[in-house]
Design a protein around this nucleic acid. Structure first.
Ligand code: MN
Ligand code: MN
Ligand code: MN
Ligand code: MN
Lengths: 160, 160
DNA sequence: ATCAGAGTGTAGCCACGGCTACATTCTGTG
DNA sequence: CACAGAATGTAGCCGTGGCTACACTCTGAT
């Protein structure tokens, strides 16, 4: 995500056949690209949640320790630690053994955007009548698939 | 998903510590469960997309061949074939070599629900002012995180 | 100062969902 | 009827994100 080195799969949009002679159904290049985008969005989701949570912990507790992160996410500490090293590799976090996790500038910035988006999504859901608990729950997954255009529309709708 | 044999990870909600003596922040069992649910939702997403697409192909083309499925999803045929065998394993589809893919009753039923939900999500997005293309795009990911409660709320909002 | 217990880290396993490369089977023309 | 080319299937590789088991390091009470 941060480093779209080649990001997952995502088949090259170009390598399409010459599109049959007649107008036999556009072959839908759009559809494939939509699925592809949804897939890559998903790949960033986990990192986004980590970064948002770490930022929260740093504010509220003053530190973000692997065990806390693991507990809050509902995964084993081993899993959390492995993902934290991925955050480091992606340049979003820094951490030295037994010393807790911190966010880089990039990490903080991402956390901010993610937090804003999370709130907007919850608010939008509430605004259209989704019950609180469902809104909180579903937002956790939905947020990662909301594009800037959609987010902007949500904002306009809420300010109405 | 259909067969929640043990479904991915999803840490046991129960194994929580005795919750410190004083009232030191509820320890948020909710948060972990929310992340967990979002994770399992994701695990079903791919199968949902396959089933919906296969159903579409069966209606429009009369058959669903691996290559078509692969092209529409933007993945290699090898990937599609592997996922198709997972669909078989999950009891959603049937397929014999060189004979195309078909849906079981369970598969058809899932496809129907998925299609309905997909449409509702797109309509909701359009209704709150999301531009068409963004709506189509984002819906492809969002749909998999919309609970029944939220879906019902969307329906009410649109019928308003 | 000790040391039990909590927290961290590492190793190794698994399933999923991508891919490429190669082998096999169909099928429509010629 | 042959057979080239398309479709299908198989094998094997990779990274992610889970897990358990075990080893190491800290730290707060005695
Ligand atoms: Mn989330
Ligand atoms: Mn969030
Ligand atoms: Mn989808
Ligand atoms: Mn869909």
């Amino acid at each position: 995500m941060v480093t779209p080195v080649r990001m997952m799969g995502m088949r090259a949009e170009s390598e399409r056949p010459p599109a049959g002679l007649a107008g036999e159904m556009p072959a839908e290049p759009t559809q494939a690209s939509r699925f592809g985008k949804a897939r890559s969005a998903q790949s960033g989701a986990l990192l986004e949640d980590y970064v948002e949570l770490i930022s929260d912990l740093l504010s509220s507790q003053g530190e973000a320790r692997p065990t806390d992160i693991a507990r809050r996410l509902g995964v084993s500490h081993a899993t959390a630690i492995k993902t934290i090293s991925r955050l480091k590799r992606e340049g979003l976090a820094e951490a030295r053994p037994y010393r807790g996790v911190f966010l880089t500038a990039a990490g903080e910035s991402l956390a901010g955007r993610v937090r804003t988006r999370h709130r907007l999504v919850v608010d939008l859901l509430l605004a259209v009548g989704v019950p609180r608990e469902a809104a909180e729950q579903d937002a956790e997954g939905i947020e990662h698939h909301v594009s800037d255009a959609t987010l902007a529309a949500f904002g306009r709708f809420l300010r109405r």
